[in-house]
Design a protein around this nucleic acid. Structure first.
Lengths: 206, 206
DNA sequence: TTTGCAATTAACCAAATGGTTAAACCAAGT
DNA sequence: ACTTGGTTTAACCATTTGGTTAATTGCAAA
């Protein structure tokens, strides 16, 4: 009966999955090791056997999640193309990736409040800081050349981020406000991949 | 020496101020009653004397904060005016109010994850649910009449909210990314009051 | 001055929590 | 059969935490 592929997960995987869910529901401080153990169907001591501490466990999950997002996004503004193309690629990539890992923005949000400096030093300063300067510069140049309407590049950057991130962090409220179930919300996000870039481009094209 | 106006706060006020700060820094689960007491410069038992429990204390602060925002926003879409005017008023009002109470969006965000149903039932369903339907309806009608470009009203609503809320919840990261101090960030928010509505209107006008 | 009542505190408590330990389990190798 | 190694568990521990209690303080009315 060879079938240890998906049906039977090993303890480590079960822990990671359970921990991810609990951390999402409760946040870092609110999460309980016992609850994670219960949800994983294993003994609490096993958590510490595989991952030394609550902090370490969270770190593993956080890095694993966030590590998926950063490189792909960083890449986009390196490659050639017009500002419009880059915005299209960025929003499409961000929403696509995060649709498959919806917990990432919530984690990031909670981390930047819990530990802003360490978060920034660990993930942003090295991997993104340069790119962000480049993006702002590209926006500024485009505005100067009349390729896009005059706009503070920092406001534009905030706008792009806002439109991508917010639906994921506000999802529990948005679904209730708009009376949409999970499937319908995923459909909205699907449409949003192009809706956001169209919205932005319409707003900034001369 | 009559001067018990501002300089000398009573214990209750000191507690509320301290609690607000600690809840912002640590979130509900991460906040410690002892830390609040220390920051208020009073004994921990006094917290329970004035506010029965941690939950109650948080509730008082949350309601007090959120109560400032809701009525003013709800009002805007009731009053007459074009869609454009309403968007202008909404973004201006939201950013203005929240600039003076920057903790509100963070509280709301954490509450909709901690207790989505209760939050929705308590604050949204009664006070805003109707208005939100009205807004969506107004957007839909405007699109149909060609007053604004064709756009899914739900996407447009999410866009408006995104652009207003995000800078406040992502502030610790944004300031580091953009290398701006508190004063400069406030200046950015100040400019954002009109920048956001201009951005939206530019995006949706035919 | 005394009484009374709200405000404030130190000391305490039970429950919860992250983490540890020593023993048991179990599959593979000999 | 027996050892060996990683895996898993039950029981335990020290500390933290929200909350309580009983005593003290301060102050205004009688």
């Amino acid at each position: 009966m060879g079938n240890t592929e998906i049906s039977i997960e090993n303890a480590e995987q079960k822990i990671l999955t359970a921990a991810r869910n609990v951390f999402i529901r409760k946040g870092f401080a609110g999460a309980r090791m016992q609850e994670i153990a219960d949800e994983a169907g294993i003994n609490k001591a096993l958590l510490h056997y595989y991952f030394r501490s609550k902090e370490k466990l969270f770190e593993v999950i956080f890095k694993e999640s966030f590590g998926k997002l950063l490189p792909e996004l960083a890449d986009i503004f390196q490659q050639p193309g017009s500002v419009f193309e880059k915005i299209e690629r960025f929003t499409e990539a961000y929403i696509s990736i995060v649709m498959e890992h919806p917990f990432i923005p919530v984690f990031v949000l909670s981390e930047i409040h819990r530990n802003p400096d360490e978060f920034f030093d660990t993930y942003i300063r090295q991997e993104l800081a340069g790119n962000i300067q480049i993006i702002a510069q590209q926006f500024a140049v485009a505005a100067q050349q009349g390729i896009i309407r005059p706009i503070d590049p920092r406001q534009l950057m905030m706008n792009v981020m806002s439109l991508c991130v917010f639906p994921f962090v506000a999802r529990p409220m948005l679904q209730r406000i708009m009376h949409v179930n999970d499937a319908a919300f995923m459909q909205l996000l699907q449409e949003r991949k192009t809706a956001v870039s169209q919205f932005i481009i319409q707003a900034i094209k001369p």
